[in-house]
Design a protein around this nucleic acid. Structure first.
Lengths: 137, 137
DNA sequence: AAATCATATTCGTCAAAGTGAATATATCCA
DNA sequence: TGGATATATTCACTTTGACGAATATGATTT
């Protein structure tokens, strides 16, 4: 049965109307990602990332989970069917984009990169653990 | 075959991130509508309507056609499949909304309303001509 | 408890975007 | 040609939102 739970359309589209937030959503895709990866891969100051994540949270597009000192963010499908489909379609659209593909590639390799990605001990995104190299637990 | 013609995603979502523009898109739906109806039905100053229509035009979401002194606007499906689907989905979503339904109802009756809608001679939207009453040509 | 690390929030500033009022442009009609 | 009508654009103002820098919070480790 169709779900038409109220969902703020305006806030939803406004959340999608920013390039940093689109990059964040692209990195999440269908997996949970730790904030530290966002910071590393976007190469942006941490407060900026945090602010945009807060924006996405307030719009109901992502949810956060704490694990010790780390915060994991994931996309949460809106309770409205139409909104959910739009969000899925948007994520697919992002996959076409070269720059977005590059971001995702960097995320995949993040756990093994030497100096630049100083993420010792940071929780590896579940979906890429073991896909990068032998060293990736 | 899938069409992935470049289409500015950011501009697209920003165009959808304003309530006035959503109301305009909702009124257009799948028909061409004259600017004078937008002004009447939204009850907003004409320059405001014009500016938002210009914004939508610049985003590639609508196109304009002149007919004498009247301008008709219609939704134009983006050349990118994903964008097109999102736009269709958005229009469907708008249909769920009470306020949007009310707007559309007012559009349907606009050609026959007595004083408030002083639109003598204004071109009746094709899709509603003849559907309102006997007087509607 | 103190130091440290990851993340969030606040503050002041700046640019983008929405708005009303006034004005310009384009078309039609007399 | 001149006036009337429909629509578009400009201007000044205000609000919103993005930003960097600084600071606060929350959790871990020593």
């Amino acid at each position: 049965m169709p779900r038409k739970v109220a969902f703020d359309m305006l806030q939803f589209f406004q959340a999608l109307g920013d390039s940093t937030r689109l990059r964040l959503l692209n990195l999440m895709g269908d997996q949970e990602v730790c904030v530290c990866y966002f910071v590393e891969i976007l190469g942006a100051p941490q407060p900026k990332i945090s602010r945009h994540l807060a924006y996405l949270r307030n719009s109901g597009v992502v949810s956060a989970r704490r694990e010790g000192k780390w915060m994991h963010y994931r996309i949460v499908m809106p309770p409205h069917d139409g909104a959910a489909q739009i969000l899925r379609q948007t994520l697919d659209w992002l996959k076409d984009d070269k720059a977005m593909q590059a971001d995702r590639a960097r995320l995949t390799k993040a756990c093994c990169s030497p100096a630049k990605y100083a993420l010792d001990g940071a929780p590896v995104p579940t979906a890429i653990s073991g896909q990068c190299c032998e060293a990736c637990a």
